[in-house]
Design a protein around this nucleic acid. Structure first.
Lengths: 202, 202
DNA sequence: ATCTTTGTTAACCAAATGGTTAAACCGAAC
DNA sequence: GTTCGGTTTAACCATTTGGTTAACAAAGAT
């Protein structure tokens, strides 16, 4: 076995990630992935057997990257307000590093809703129970207005995720160019957290 | 010319809408659209020349449906708080009627960002200027905390849109079934508006 | 009645696409 | 240096897919 073995597999995954995340499962071509990885198309099948299996490998890797981001807000042991500030700030850095990733996951999950079941089996699958208790505790202590952990979680995610997923749409509505839109996103790094906190603080 | 003429064209558009919105441009097959419309595949080309042109017809129709929803929040002449309540409430009804539409638009716009330029040419393209003035006015009158119209608009849209686009993901994280998730969405019909208003009210 | 235009279909086509195969390659163990 | 294992490639294959064509039906127009 040559030393290239893992190298090739990694290069395939990297190329597949790029193509799949930008064009989706249906819009991606095995040939394009092979070209981008600089190898023969047959290698894709040698290492991953089929387009579907290659896709699932890429998808799982993508999800593995996203999960730790969510752990920050779900499992960490910090004060609720700091948590919201911390997540909002770090999520934006994450998206800059992986621009297509959240959209990719959401999109493919829409086309294949049962994927989530297989993901849940993983030990690192994010769990909201701890966060729910924390929110409930803050409500009981009179720190924040009554709100369920679920709804607060949905709100935090929505405010952080959609502006990136729907960037072209918002750019159109707001009539701003890429640079101006990036400035808006930069502003959100702090503003979104305060927006949320203002809403729930008593 | 038979009386079927417009009928056929409409049936093609209806079938194409269903298929394109659920599977996207790349994932859709002309044959499937023809089957769903109950006609021969050649008719698709007879009426719309190519897959691309059929797709664009569907896309424009979809956008035409979405635009009036946005006008509610951008152009109407009602009080800001009422506007937020009204939009939130009516948007959810809209999504129930057209479940795949917002995701479809966002997704295809991501794969084809220059689409938005062609859409902007339309007279009915939503314009945010009036809304910006209204927000500014409310800030100046001390009714709400300082916030730009752009950011408030992004927040309103995000809180309303993402929970539907990312429904499978949220269902997974929250570990709820379809029925429970729908209940959460129902709760949001009023809660989201109050969440926003609480955040900006002085 | 026949001619013309429009709508519709079945059969067909070329290109693209996911996947396979058989042979070549290449480093390592013997 | 020969053999043996996994690795890599070029060529090939069957199917799918968007699109075309030629013939045909139906309805006005003359």
């Amino acid at each position: 076995m040559t030393a290239k073995q893992e190298n090739t597999e990694a290069e395939i995954l990297e190329a597949a990630k790029t193509v799949f995340q930008q064009k989706g499962m249906a819009g991606s071509r095995m040939q394009e992935i092979a070209d981008k990885a600089g190898i023969n198309k047959a290698m894709l099948h040698y290492y991953f057997r089929s387009k579907q299996m290659l896709f699932e490998a890429v998808f799982k890797n993508a999800f593995k990257l996203l999960a730790p981001q969510l752990k920050k807000i779900l499992d960490e042991d910090t004060d609720l307000f700091d948590k919201i500030r911390g997540f909002t700030n770090s999520y934006i850095s994450f998206v800059i590093k992986h621009p297509y990733l959240p959209n990719f996951i959401i999109q493919e999950l829409n086309k294949n809703p049962d994927f989530i079941e297989r993901l849940r089996a993983d030990k690192d699958f994010p769990n909201i129970e701890k966060f729910k208790l924390q929110v409930e505790d803050n409500v009981n202590r009179g720190v924040i207005k009554p709100i369920s952990g679920e709804q607060l979680f949905i709100n935090i995610m929505s405010l952080n995720i959609l502006p990136f997923i729907a960037a072209p749409l918002f750019k159109g509505f707001l009539n701003v160019n890429d640079k101006e839109y990036r400035a808006l996103m930069d502003q959100r790094k702090t503003e979104v957290a305060e927006f949320i906190i203002n809403s729930i603080r008593l």
